[in-house]
């Protein structure tokens, strides 16, 4: 009888120990799962990704700030060409721009503005610039914003090219950056499907 009680006590202690270990593991689990990351169970992946190539640069040279009541586009003296280098599929072409930042003073920044041509100076304010791109082939184009946006209408066929003509709208007089080289980009993103 005494042996039976002792056995029961021992089994109870074992069970308590295992319960404590299990509890500890469960408490640690959320941290482990969050740190390691988990793969979502249902993910559908479509292959056959996009391919795009670019050649050429935009050259705007030396430009004055825009005076009040007279804002107009500046054309680049050179153009760029983008090519859908995928062997089989057409691609949507999206475009986005960036802020313009001085190459010598990072605090001199011009923000990208999509309404500068209609607002004009001085309405649009200082330190705002506009950057538009057009396709020679489709004649369509957009003012660049910071978000990828469908640009030239049709999809670009496999192996086909778009010749890109850019336009620049200089900031209003009184903006910063006089005498600086300003760095900015037009980025064309190819997307299949």
């Amino acid at each position: 009888m005494r042996n039976s009680k002792k056995g029961n006590h021992l089994a109870g202690r074992r069970a308590a120990l295992l319960f404590a270990v299990t509890l500890a593991l469960v408490m640690v689990a959320p941290v482990s799962a969050a740190d390691n990351g988990s793969v979502p169970g249902q993910v559908s992946v479509v292959g056959g990704g996009a391919c795009i190539e670019v050649a050429g640069v935009f050259t705007f040279g030396l430009q004055p700030f825009s005076p009040d009541g007279a804002i107009g586009p500046t054309l680049s003296s050179t153009g760029a060409t983008i090519t859908n280098c995928d062997a089989t599929a057409p691609a949507d072409i999206l475009a986005r721009g960036t802020a313009a930042v001085s190459s010598t003073d990072a605090e001199v920044v011009w923000d990208l503005n999509t309404t500068i041509a209609s607002d004009g100076c001085p309405t649009v304010g200082t330190d705002q610039y506009g950057h538009a791109v057009f396709s020679v082939q489709t004649g369509l184009g957009i003012f660049l914003s910071l978000v990828d946006t469908p640009t030239f209408g049709d999809q670009l066929a496999s192996g086909a090219t778009y010749d890109i003509v850019p336009q620049l709208y200089m900031p209003c007089e009184g903006s910063g950056g006089a005498g600086h080289t300003m760095n900015f980009s037009a980025i064309f993103t190819a997307l299949q499907g």
Partner: peptide, 22 residues
Amino acid sequence: GFALLAFAPAAKADGGVAVDLS
């Protein structure tokens, strides 16, 4: 009050990129 912009051909843009998923 002029800003000096983009002294090409200092910028090199030729190249390309491809991905395997759409």
